[in-house]
Design a protein around this nucleic acid. Structure first.
Lengths: 360, 360
DNA sequence: CTGAAAGCGCTTACAG
DNA sequence: CTGAAAGCGCTTACAG
């Protein structure tokens, strides 16, 4: 009966509350005729309060339209429920997909996420330090490669109980203390290259990312390993640096097109570059895959609708995002006690139509 | 001399500080032998403090590695320096570009931004209310259409001094109180359609967004106006709804392909859909633009590298983002006193190669 | 189960 | 120019 009453607080009251200035916990306490401590308990530990009191308080909350001041809560608790994710390129659909996973998990766990787009590997230790303190966050997700400099700063921060986890990036030994989740980039790149080889290609080039990106290094490493294993040589000038962007790849591809010994296939370190690569090849009047075969990496959503549809390595981007966020939550909650072993997620070669047998 | 000394605090001290537990303003005050009030002033209003004291304090700050607890600051000041941006699709490169502008401006102004991806027009008033209170932000940027329901909630919030500004979206009369910055969507859509007409097309279809999206409505309106003005009729089934995604557009395009009176040109409400549209047309063995011409909207970075390169309406996405963020800052600082007239930014028809004269 | 009280780290009138 | 003090809105031992 009483319950019913509480459940049917007239709409109007809520509407009125909407127009009221902010109510604090004091008003609620006064109205319910209890202490502010009890109001707080009703909200955060309802089981510590009698059903009767709880109802009184809930009623008062409804009448006032009260909701706790999260600023005060954050301050008091010493936690913001905000995490920061650092990534090199928010525009890359691959990272967008990872972010989707991160956001989903964050929402489920009650966190907000702020994004910092930056090439971590080009920052000085001071800059990184400044970035970290200026954003008062509960933890950090790193989707970008670090300079050794940065690593030091991060390790220091980490010791001061700023949880950090790494996603996508291959983790260098000096970062082994941090939890991470990523695919096996070396194996994936090998697989991509081997596929090209299995189709009869021998002159295979690669467009990779910046030299300072570990992830890119691993993909290059896998490519080189596969070539070596197949006894195929890599000519000078066949490994060119894009910067993971369309524009960078177009420029890199031009170099490849002008190479004395033009490759019959190109392995791109990401799909974004594969798109630029295909476009550039076409601008030479050549056709993909008839004249040159292309393999990408990431399987972004555009890979399916490029012309031709792109053969590429698929990463479970959203899953990586989710896992990395949950991992961070565990660190935030359990501290450095939580496991820090790397989590390897599976990749997959997705065969579409950008690879054919070599013409020559 | 003294200045010099201060400027050359040995590296080591800073390094030490890195390892220390959090220092509060009290430690600094003790070390500098002043009150915490003075320390606070040194940081926030240095001009209110003697040069001598200032140096003493700055020294202590350096030695301790102190940086103010932003949680406490936020709480005390009642401001978080966080803004929220609500948008329908973080994956759309157009919004990514807008976000880049927002982020740049936010950084310049000392704000962090959190993103909320949601179809505002499908949410109930309660859901919107919950979303708003759960994120304690200083202001909101809306890049998504609102239901009338949502509008009410927002107006109420706005009266309670939660600054809101609208970007990209056309603003309906009931939202006229909010500042906004966007292109003239009607005029732009007209221009796109007129271009098709000028090339000799008469059977022109449109793939638009969800019915509930104002922006989409405006683009459709512009298209219809242009058709009418040219005395061209629009057959039933020529205006189909994608949902601003590749997949949605592919489905919509299939309907167009199967239409008894197949159009010779298609105007897509955004580039993302144009990409899906082109892909689908090709899957019928047809060619763009030889068989069907396509015009997109937004000029995302892929527009240039589609096959064929896409003719589209270019919006100054980053500029919109920057302006909308600066606009929000003004609202946060000046309150509702700040201007609320809409800011119209220029668009441009970018002619590439997805339009040809009709074959028939 | 409940209340009185301390305290989180800052900022800012208010005196002096 | 500087300091002592109040207070922002909460949460949480500590008594009772």
């Amino acid at each position: 009966m009483k319950q019913d009453l509480n459940d049917t607080v007239p709409q109007q009251e809520a509407a009125e509350a909407e127009d009221m200035p902010d109510v604090s916990i004091k008003e609620v306490a006064r109205l319910a005729d209890v202490s502010i401590a009890t109001v707080s308990r009703c909200i955060n530990n309802p089981e510590k309060v009698t059903a009767k009191t709880r109802l009184k308080v809930q009623d008062a909350i409804r009448q006032t339209g009260y909701s706790p001041n999260t600023l005060a809560q954050s301050f008091r608790r010493g936690r913001t429920n905000i995490v920061m994710v650092v990534l090199p390129s928010v525009g890359d659909p691959f990272f967008t997909a990872v972010m989707r996973g991160i956001r989903a998990a964050a929402k489920a766990k009650g966190y907000s996420v702020v994004i910092e787009e930056t090439q971590l590997n080009t920052m000085t230790a001071d800059e990184i330090g400044a970035m970290l303190v200026s954003n008062q966050t509960d933890g950090i997700i790193l989707l970008a490669s670090m300079s050794p400099f940065g690593t030091e700063v991060l390790s220091a921060k980490s010791k001061r109980r700023l949880p950090i986890v790494i996603g996508c990036e291959t983790v260098s030994p000096d970062l082994a203390d941090f939890p991470s989740v990523h695919i096996d980039n070396i194996a994936a790149a090998k697989e991509a290259t081997n596929y090209l080889i299995s189709q009869g290609h021998q002159r295979i080039a690669m467009v990779c990312g910046q030299a300072s990106s570990l992830l890119t290094k691993d993909r290059e490493f896998g490519y080189r390993a596969a070539m070596k294993q197949a006894d195929l040589s890599i000519e000078d000038g066949w490994v060119v640096e894009g910067d993971l962007t369309i524009a960078g790849a177009r420029k890199a591809t031009r170099n490849l097109m002008n190479h004395g010994n033009r490759p019959t296939a190109i392995f791109c370190a990401n799909d974004e570059m594969a798109i630029g690569c295909i476009h550039e090849i076409k601008s030479y009047g050549l056709r993909v895959p008839r004249d040159i075969s292309i393999v990408g990496f990431d399987d972004i959503r555009y890979a399916e609708v490029t012309d031709p549809p792109l053969t590429t390595i698929s990463q479970p981007a959203e899953e990586i995002g989710e896992r990395v966020m949950y991992r961070l939550c565990r660190r935030i909650e359990a501290g450095n006690g939580a496991s820090s072993s790397p989590e390897i997620v599976p990749h997959k070669l997705v065969i579409r139509q950008s690879v054919a047998k070599p013409a020559s």
